[in-house]
Computed example of a mutant assay.
Amino acid sequence: MFDRRPVTVTDEVAIVQGRTAYPDRTYSDLWVIRLDADDRCREFTGCWMEHPAPAAG
């Protein structure tokens, strides 16, 4: 499963927050997309963080 939502969008940058879930792990994602004058991506930075596994019990 993959969910995403824009956090902010301007003429020069878009920031997107996401969540990617696999059967055995889940990640939070953050994308920073810098746009040129033609609204094309000129720079992309993607960061992710794995969620801790649920406690057994």
Results as ranks from 00 to 15, higher is better:
D11T: 02
R25H: 07
T10D: 00
T45I: 13
M49R: 08
V9G: 10
P23G: 04
F44G: 03
R34A: 10
V32M: 04
T10I: 00
I33T: 06
V16P: 10
I33L: 09
S28L: 05
R4T: 07
V9T: 03
P54E: 03
T26H: 03
G57F: 05
L30C: 08
I33V: 10
T45A: 13
V13K: 09
P52D: 02
T20E: 10
R42W: 08
C41P: 12
T10R: 04
R25M: 08
R19H: 14
P23E: 15
V32T: 09
F44S: 08
F2E: 09
A37N: 06
E50F: 01
F2D: 08
R42F: 06
R42L: 08
E12R: 02
W31H: 14
H51R: 13
V13S: 05
R25F: 03
R4I: 13
V16Q: 06
D24I: 06
W31Q: 05
A56P: 04
V9L: 11
G57D: 05
E12Q: 03
V32W: 02
A14M: 01
R5C: 11
C47W: 06
M1Y: 04
G46A: 08
A14V: 06
T26N: 03
E12G: 05
L30E: 05
R25N: 01
I33E: 03
A37T: 09
E43A: 06
S28D: 08
V16C: 04
A53V: 00
I15F: 08
H51W: 01
L30W: 09
A21Y: 15
R19D: 10
